[in-house]
Design a protein around this nucleic acid. Structure first.
Length: 321
DNA sequence: AAGACGAAAGTGGTTGA
DNA sequence: TCAACAACTTTCGTCTT
């Protein structure tokens, strides 16, 4: 990202947690026209292009107690997380009779450790469910780091996968496919635009398989998932193309207009987003080539072309090439 | 030379009998 | 289950800047 074009405004974690929606106005130019980039969880001012970061910067355990529930939290140990199969709470007892310094332990300790080991094996950590979860979580880790998935999405995916496990949906399905499908579900629900294609290319399983699992989860868990909207993609693509907030805003206006004219029905949302950005980039004097835009949107130039021709014609946008 | 354009044939997914 | 179908892709020759 270029210096000067994108300025960044950090909001402290505390302020953010007090009221999630407190950012209503740009802290610099006082404009209220803010656009959410849900990919990264940032807010961008469409007037001056200021990026208002809402991300937690420090993810370590540094909490203060505000109520009884939080009082229980201590500043020791790692935070509890759903992305580790045992929520990060378990302790492993190793097989060799050595202490943590590598010294041999006394015979008395030995018998005690022996008993502990027995219980560890009997405990859930070794059950098939947890072996499954452990595998699933490492796959989730791999996928989400490749796709730049925010931590909160990863956590939600882990929760969803657990739910799916409880509902006995996993049996007969591959773990990889189910994890990919859960991830896709959460991305859709949270408006974090990741296409099924993007997930599929980084997964070991075929797109078809993931799609099947996705539908299975939807059906069995009764999830309501909003339709993929081009709006979700526009923020992400303009960002990747280093376009200004003005262009982003213009593109959003175009897509809104297109929706009102019924031009969006049955069309690929990524292609639509791409064409809106193309038009908007020309109008705002930050032209990008069809190829550049097609590339970030994962569609072909032809699709960008067809969509944009259609939009220009139907919406009567004056555009000089 | 790069970008834009459009035609034509091919592909994968949905729909409806 | 199969064919029809719309949207999208691939490919390629031509035009424009």
């Amino acid at each position: 990202m270029e210096e000067g074009k994108w300025r960044i405004y950090l909001i402290s974690e505390k302020t953010y947690k007090d009221d999630e929606d407190f950012i209503k106005m740009c802290p610099e130019c006082k404009s209220t026209e803010l656009i959410k980039d849900r990919t990264r969880g940032d807010t961008i001012c469409s007037n001056c292009g200021l990026v208002i970061l809402e991300k937690e910067i420090d993810q370590g355990p540094e909490w203060r107690s505000f109520d009884a529930e939080q009082e229980k939290r201590r500043r020791t140990g790692s935070p509890m997380t759903y992305t580790v199969h045992d929520k990060g709470l378990s302790t492993m007892i190793s097989w060799d009779n050595k202490d943590s310094y590598g010294k041999k332990i006394s015979p008395k300790m030995k018998s005690q450790i022996f008993r502990l080991r027995k219980w560890q094996i009997r405990s859930r950590v070794y059950s098939s469910i947890d072996r499954n979860l452990a595998l699933a979580m490492s796959e989730l880790d791999r996928l989400s780091s490749q796709l730049n998935i925010p931590r909160s999405i990863k956590e939600s995916t882990a929760v969803l996968y657990r739910k799916a496990t409880e509902e006995k949906l996993i049996r007969g399905q591959s773990i990889e496919a189910m994890i990919a499908a859960s991830l896709y579900c959460v991305c859709r629900i949270r408006h974090v635009p990741r296409t099924l294609d993007e997930i599929a290319t980084r997964s070991y399983v075929h797109k078809k398989e993931i799609g099947r699992c996705y539908r299975l989860i939807l059906k069995k868990l009764n999830l309501k998932i909003p339709l993929a909207s081009p709006v979700d993609y526009i923020a992400r693509f303009t960002n990747e193309l280093n376009l200004s907030g003005k262009t982003l805003k213009r593109a959003n206006e175009i897509i809104k207009l297109a929706k009102e004219h019924g031009l969006t029905i049955g069309k690929d949302p990524t292609g639509l987003a791409a064409s809106c950005i193309y038009i908007s980039s020309i109008l705002e004097g930050e032209r990008r080539t069809q190829r550049e835009i097609a590339e970030v949107a994962h569609v072909t130039e032809v699709t960008v072309r067809n969509r944009y021709k259609e939009l220009v014609k139907e919406l009567r946008i004056d555009i000089e090439i």
